[in-house]
Structures are given as C-alpha cells and as structure tokens.
C-alpha cells in the first residue's frame, strides 16, 4: 500500500492498522495475532513478556486488544475506554536505527514530520506487575503522546540479554489525530465501498463500552473474582511445577486481569492493593523463571557464551 499523506484522505482505523502491518512486515517482522486472553496492555502478550527473554532474535508486530476496567466511562467520555487497541512492535536485539524505523512508520500512516512536531520526551517505563522496566520516551506529536518507546532492560526480574526495543502505539488516539476527530466514537473504522457503508468506531464499540462499564463497576460478582484469583494463583504454581511455563503464564495473565476487575469493583483497599500486586508479580516472575529454565539449555547450545 502506498500512501501519500498530502493527497489522500486520512486513513481509516483499519487501514492504519493494515498500513502498520505492511510497514513492519516489510522490515522483517512476523505479524502475529492478538493473544486470546484479557490483558491490560500489549506488553502482556507472551510474544513480548516471555520472548523478550533469552538470546534469540525476535521481531514481531501485532495488535493487542487491551482491557482496563477502571478506565471505563459508560461510553460517555470522548477519550476514555475500558477496551481499546494497542499496536505493539518488538525488535530483539534493538536495531541501531530503531528511531528512524519508527519515524518511518509515522510517515507511512500520514504524519509529516516537517508539518507536525515529533518529540522524544523522557519516560521511563515500569510494570510493577511484570517485574519489568526499561528506558525510553513517550513520543509526542504536537504535544500528544502517541507512542511509548522503550528499550527493555529487565523482564520478570531478569536482565534482557540482548535488549529488545518495544514500540507501543495507542491506536485510537493516533487515529483520532490523523482523522482530526475529537470523539473516539466518531472515528472512521472502515470506509464505505460501493453501496456497503463504512462503520464508525461507535458503531462497533459504543454499546460494548456501556455494557462492560456497567459489568466492571457494578455487576461482576466479587466472590467469583476473588475465587478466580485464588484458582489462577494455584494453577499457575501447578503449571510451573509441571514444567509448562507458557500455561503458567496464562494463569498469571488471568490473575492480573481479575485483580484489575476487583479494583474496578472497589473492593481492594489501599493496603491490600500492594499485596495483590506483589502476588501477581510473583506469578509473572515465576513464569518467566520457568520459561528461562525450560529454554536455557537450547539457548546456551545455540548461543555459546550466553549467560542469564
């Protein structure tokens, strides 16, 4: 797909995704599909969390639906959603021209860097529930944060060797920016073709936001959520003991999301909050450790000299 920003109308939401897929695919990335679990961010996808560990090259791009129950606003806020999309790119090891590649992707979706002010503003990323941190920036376009740009230093408490570069685009805000729209529900999701009408973001998601906001904040049964958290915690440990870290990590993701729902239901006190986060972190770290243990023989065989 060739896009000339000056002459075409701004990309629809789905064309922006397709453009990014093509762009990163052409740069050697495998285009993966979203992970089939409820997660708070693209970073939780095992293609980022687990695969950023170890010496093997790993270059992937994917869209990840992300759920943040406490951000729900019943469809009434033009910017806030409890379900939205992140576009995630992981390049391991981080290439020397990562910034240039990233800026190329902005140009591809129609942002002219001599018309718009692109800035790299310090933002050190940290995920307490994943035991992960990295250094990088939030990328500003005319004062708006459009991407989180991070060089992973640690994941699950382990050094990233080598370091992976992570790009996380906030797709809705980027699309709102490109389309010049002030309300997320007004975004053109798809364009009309022939007599088939295009859809707006609101056509697709407004009712979801209303119902899920209600469920997250008011309906979800907290006893079941607590029970689910405990079950996931126990199952994670069983899976670690059984030597299947990928399955264990699924349970860590599950526990993390149930914790987020419990937060939205307002049943976790300030004091308990830190405790729950520490329990989720332990699951994530345990899964990462088990993943490393299961792979390290093959890693050291293929990459002599590599150490944890």
């Amino acid at each position: 797909m060739v896009v000339d920003a000056a002459e075409t109308k701004p990309l629809s939401f789905q064309d922006m995704i397709l453009t990014l897929h093509n762009y990163w695919s052409a740069r050697g990335c495998a285009v993966l599909q979203p992970y089939d679990m409820r997660v708070g961010a693209g970073t939780f996808h095992p293609a980022t969390t687990l695969r950023s560990l170890g010496p093997e090259p790993w270059n992937v791009a994917y869209v990840q639906p992300s759920r943040r129950p406490t951000d729900g606003r019943y469809g009434e806020n033009p910017n806030r959603l409890q379900h939205y999309y992140q576009y995630q790119v992981i390049l391991k090891p981080s290439p020397a021209d990562l910034q240039e590649q990233y800026l190329g992707s902005l140009a591809a979706i129609g942002i002219d860097p001599l018309l718009h002010d692109i800035r790299f503003v310090e933002d050190d990323w940290e995920s307490p529930t994943l035991g992960a941190w990295g250094l990088g920036w939030e990328v500003w376009c005319d004062g708006m944060e459009v991407t989180q740009f991070t060089y992973f230093q640690q994941m699950g408490g382990f050094d990233c060797k080598p370091v992976a570069g992570e790009l996380t685009y906030g797709l809705e805000r980027l699309a709102m920016y490109i389309q010049g729209v002030d309300n997320v529900y007004d975004l053109r999701f798809s364009d009309p073709v022939g007599d088939v009408p295009g859809l707006s973001y609101g056509d697709v998601f407004l009712e979801n936001e209303r119902q899920f906001s209600k469920w997250n904040f008011e309906v979800a049964d907290t006893d079941s959520l607590f029970a689910g958290f405990r079950a996931a915690e126990a199952e994670c440990q069983r899976a670690i003991d059984a030597g299947v870290p990928l399955a264990a990590y699924d349970q860590a993701i599950e526990a993390s999301h149930l914790f987020n729902l419990l937060q939205a239901r307002g049943v976790i006190s300030v004091q308990e909050r830190a405790n729950y986060m520490a329990r989720v972190r332990d699951l994530a770290k345990g899964s990462c450790k088990a993943w490393i243990d299961s792979q390290s023989d093959s890693w050291t065989a293929k990459y002599p000299g590599w150490t944890l």
Binding site: P93, L135, K161, P162
Partner: peptide
C-alpha cells in the same frame, strides 16, 4: 540512570 542496547547487550 543508564541502559544497555543493541546486539552488544547480549553481554552484561
């Protein structure tokens, strides 16, 4: 705060 990066960062 400082960081490692790129291919070289395979080594501590």
């Amino acid at each position: 705060k400082s960081m490692r990066w790129g291919r070289e960062s395979a080594s501590s």
